[in-house]
């Protein structure tokens, strides 16, 4: 344990603990939140917009629902959005980068020009357009962000493959008559995937920020479901007089994104990789 702490550093360990806490809250939300039914959306209009107190630790929202319970249930959405966006993007980007880097020539040229087109958009705008076209819903907003996200991984995977392709062990495999597909999948993919996974860990924070931005714009989860971005938007009408409605979910997004970012940095310092800029 202490060796582990030393490797991640104090900040990294603290952030890992924070992420684990949020993950546990998300997983066991129905048992850990004080008012699970309100967390899932049942209104409680007799207790509208109550300030934080012993009964409602973080106060209540415009429908009288316990903000703490909503924040705990909201962790499910933000966690899964952050992780799924990155996972979907890897699922598209990695094969594309592998194909482009391994085969080169016109395949490479064609695939890279396609990534150019995607990268030409300010990312959030394309996601907004796509999420609007697909309609609201968590999965749709995740897909919308992933579509703007994968080209980064494709580019990165391609660059890794280009390096690995020239390695002696790959040439050796090729001389021994190993099939192309097998070389690509067994000999190159594992080496190329590793730095991408580190990058993916760094990207969970920006990914969940982007998802919460879509949700803030009304392009995320559907109404009764609790989501942090949406809660900030709802609380905006009561800000700053009844600050707790927007502040609690806002702080939650900030903390989780911060935790992923600092932990990612700690991982990167060990593994090597680059911070992605959130545009």
């Amino acid at each position: 344990m202490s060796a582990f702490v030393r490797r991640l550093g104090f900040g990294g360990t603290l952030c890992l603990a924070l992420i684990v806490t949020f993950a546990l809250l998300a997983l066991f939300a129905p048992w850990l939140s004080p008012y699970p039914d309100q967390g899932m959306g049942t209104p409680n209009v007799i207790a509208k917009l109550k300030p934080p107190a012993a009964t409602f630790w973080l106060g209540t929202d415009h429908l009288g629902r316990d903000v703490l319970s909503r924040v705990i249930f909201g962790a499910r959405v933000s966690m899964s959005a952050g992780l799924l966006i990155v996972a979907f993007s890897l699922l598209i980007g990695l094969p594309v980068g592998l194909l482009a880097g391994y085969f080169g020539g016109w395949v490479d040229e064609a695939l890279m020009r396609i990534t150019d087109v995607f990268l030409a958009f300010p990312a959030l705008l394309l996601a907004v357009l796509l999420a609007a076209a697909l309609g609201p819903g968590l999965l749709n907003s995740i897909v919308a962000v992933a579509v703007t996200w994968w080209p980064w991984y494709a580019r990165m995977a391609r660059a890794e493959v280009l390096v690995l392709r020239g390695q002696p062990y790959v040439e050796a495999a090729s001389v021994m008559g190993v099939s192309q597909a097998r070389i690509a999948i067994r000999h190159i993919l594992p080496g190329a995937a590793r730095p991408l996974l580190v990058q993916a860990a760094l990207d969970v924070g920006p990914a969940l920020l982007t998802a919460s931005s879509l949700s803030f714009l009304g392009l995320g989860v559907l109404p009764p479901t609790a989501d942090w971005g949406k809660m900030v938007d709802e609380g905006r009408k009561f800000f700053p007089d009844r600050w707790w409605v927007a502040a609690a979910p806002g702080v939650a997004i900030f903390l989780l994104a911060l935790a992923f970012s600092v932990l990612g940095d700690a991982l990167r310092n060990r593994e090597g990789g680059k911070r992605r800029d959130t545009t």
């Binding site: 920006p206 920020l209 919460s212 900030v232 905006r236």
Partner: peptide, 22 residues
């Protein structure tokens, strides 16, 4: 610069309004 990476734009905007305007 570490904090600014993690701060949601829309929430930061509200905080600035709170401090500088309210």
């Amino acid at each position: 610069s570490i904090l600014s990476v993690a701060m949601p734009t829309f929430f930061f905007a509200m905080l600035l309004q709170l401090v500088f305007s309210q």
